[in-house]
């Protein structure tokens, strides 16, 4: 579904990703783990075509999107829920969601998508007339995920959805991600909450200073020295 080969990305002179390769298959939940500054968000931004790679390739469902526009990628079925939610803070929750269906692919089904995300997140429905910037962090994260779903993605990428949330809210968010995956959406998840992410994901990658240093199934990762020492503190 998503195929990344030897991807190099940087900002000006600084190179952040030094040749990353990974793939996400249809129906999976795949986790990307890594410490602060490893380059996880940079990878997400390159895939969503917010920054241009220096070298390497990205393909989505067999189509090369390495140089595609951000809008094209959304129309091809990829949605990203960015780090820090990035809601439009002065708009109502519902306006945020309606704009999530801006892409051509999603526009005709806006009403159906809205009903669908309200079913997944009843709390978002309750808050639909509220100004997004006034929501709690957990509510904002749910709106951000709901907004991503409004574009009817076949692949949903989430960048640190648990960031800054209380454990009970994290559990709620992770449960909704599982539900979304169960209804047929492939999920690519960036997390620093390694224990939580590996409960969800069946496979994962570890990114350290711009390189994939490890990949494997949940069991392999949980059993590995790198993950146990550096991320689980065992």
């Amino acid at each position: 579904m998503l195929e990344i080969e030897r991807l190099q990305v940087g900002y000006g002179e600084i190179r952040v990703l030094e040749g990353c390769s990974l793939h996400v298959d249809r129906g999976e939940i795949v986790a990307l783990l890594g410490a602060n500054g490893a380059g996880k968000t940079t990878l997400m931004r390159a895939i969503s075509r917010l920054i241009d790679p220096i070298a390497g390739s990205i393909s989505l469902e067999g189509e090369d999107i390495t140089r595609a526009s951000a809008a094209h990628v959304v129309d091809a079925g990829l949605a990203q829920v960015p780090e820090g939610r990035k809601l439009w803070p002065e708009m109502t929750v519902e306006d945020n969601l309606l704009l999530g269906a801006f892409a051509r692919r999603a526009r005709p089904q806006t009403a159906a998508s809205l009903a669908e995300v309200y079913a997944i997140f009843p709390r978002v429905k309750e808050r639909r007339r509220q100004i997004a910037g006034t929501l709690s962090g957990g509510e904002q994260q749910m709106v951000a995920i709901a907004r991503g779903l409004m574009s009817q993605p076949s692949l949903l990428m989430l960048d640190e959805p648990s960031l800054g949330l209380a454990p009970i809210i994290v559990a709620e968010v992770f449960a909704s991600i599982r539900k979304i995956n169960a209804s047929g959406t492939t999920v690519f998840l960036v997390e620093q909450n390694v224990a939580g992410a590996l409960e969800l994901a069946s496979r994962g990658y570890v990114l350290e200073t711009g390189r994939i240093v490890m990949e494997g199934s949940r069991e392999q990762l949980l059993g590995s020295e790198i993950v146990r020492k550096a991320y689980l503190g065992l």
């Binding site: 526009s69 959304v74 809601l87 801006f102």
Partner: peptide
């Protein structure tokens, strides 16, 4: 709405497929 979205958060607007 798309105009307001760009004024409030450009990057989120791009992620929604707004040109």
């Amino acid at each position: 709405r798309a105009i307001r979205a760009v004024s409030q958060d450009r990057e989120a607007a791009r992620l929604a497929g707004i040109d």
